[in-house]
């Protein structure tokens, strides 16, 4: 058996799997998005652009996603950066790994249970009851953009901390000493040395979190209570409630296209800053 045939045999199962379970389904979505809704739901063959023309009907979902995903990403960044900095630069090396693992572990556990925890905390008998007790009455936290944002930060903070930590940890500490030896104040060293050198980590973290947020369903479903909904929630509604497969497919295609466009623009912007994306693996 030659090298070539051996490699082909090794690749065959994975290749077939990707063909049947990835390419075929995605092609079906693309074809269906040009079709029509069947009389009893589902799909009826056609080649029309009606579904795409109808996209503005779901504008609110796209608007919410495109507002809360960037806000959530930025909020995670603002909270994550000081922690990553502390872990990479300030903390005793003895404790570094343990503390880092403690940040990452939640990310690998069920996002469903972690979001549920906030229903529990922000719901009527949680924090609002506590606030009521100290005299602040009628605070409504659950099912607001605020609760969705808390859920987002809680869910994705670890993913933001990790790449920033990696880029700060790799930073040559002698640069910081050189800067202060040359008379720079600490904040100036931070702004002119540390911050620019950590941009690759920041860029990676923001992109990872943003991409995942664009397809989010669970957090708005659990903490937004039908009032704050993302494209993901619209998709669940279209496929599992109204069973409008043609329109649902168009919304799904639109989501992927919007995602690709934003990520491309973002990459252009990052590349113009002259940074290469950091290779980061959380495992």
């Amino acid at each position: 058996m030659t090298h070539g045939t051996r490699n082909l045999l090794l690749l065959a199962p994975a290749g077939t799997w990707f063909l049947v379970m990835l390419l075929l389904p995605l092609t079906v979505v693309l074809i269906f998005s040009f079709g029509e809704r069947g009389t009893s739901g589902g799909y009826a063959p056609a080649f029309v652009l009606d579904q795409y023309a109808n996209l503005p009907a779901r504008w609110t979902a796209f608007k919410n996603t495109l507002t809360l995903a960037p806000i959530g990403t930025l909020a995670s960044l603002v909270i994550a950066y000081p922690l990553a900095y502390y872990l990479a630069v300030k903390v005793d090396p003895k404790w570094k790994t343990t503390l880092l693992v403690l940040v990452i572990v939640p990310f690998w556990t069920s996002i469903l249970i972690r979001s549920y925890a906030w229903i529990f905390l922000l719901g009527g008998r949680g924090l609002p009851a506590l606030l009521d007790w100290v005299g602040i009455e009628d605070v409504r936290l659950i099912n607001t953009p605020f609760s969705v944002l808390v859920g987002i930060i809680y869910g994705y903070l670890p993913l933001m901390v990790f790449p920033i930590f990696v880029s700060l940890d790799r930073l040559d500490k002698r640069l910081l000493e050189a800067s202060s030896d040359l008379g720079a104040k600490p904040w100036r060293t931070f702004l002119q040395v540390t911050l620019p050198l950590s941009v690759p980590g920041v860029a990676t973290g923001c992109m990872l979190v943003f991409i995942l947020l664009m397809g989010e369903f669970l957090i708005p479903a659990l903490l937004g209570g039908g009032k704050v909904f993302f494209v993901g929630n619209a998709l669940v509604d279209l496929f599992l409630q109204s069973r409008n497969w043609a329109y649902g497919s168009a919304v799904a295609v639109a989501l992927v296209v919007v995602m690709l466009i934003t990520v491309t623009i973002y990459m252009r912007f990052i590349n113009r800053l002259g940074v290469n994306r950091e290779d980061v693996s959380m495992v």
């Binding site: 990707f18 990835l22 075929l24 389904p25 079906v28 979505v29 995942l212 664009m214 993901g232 998709l235």
Partner: peptide
């Protein structure tokens, strides 16, 4: 593609496919 496409789109695509 498998990693980038949101899970929800993979789910939908697999269902109707």
């Amino acid at each position: 593609v498998a990693v980038m496409i949101p899970g929800i789109v993979i789910g939908i695509a697999t269902l109707i496919g």
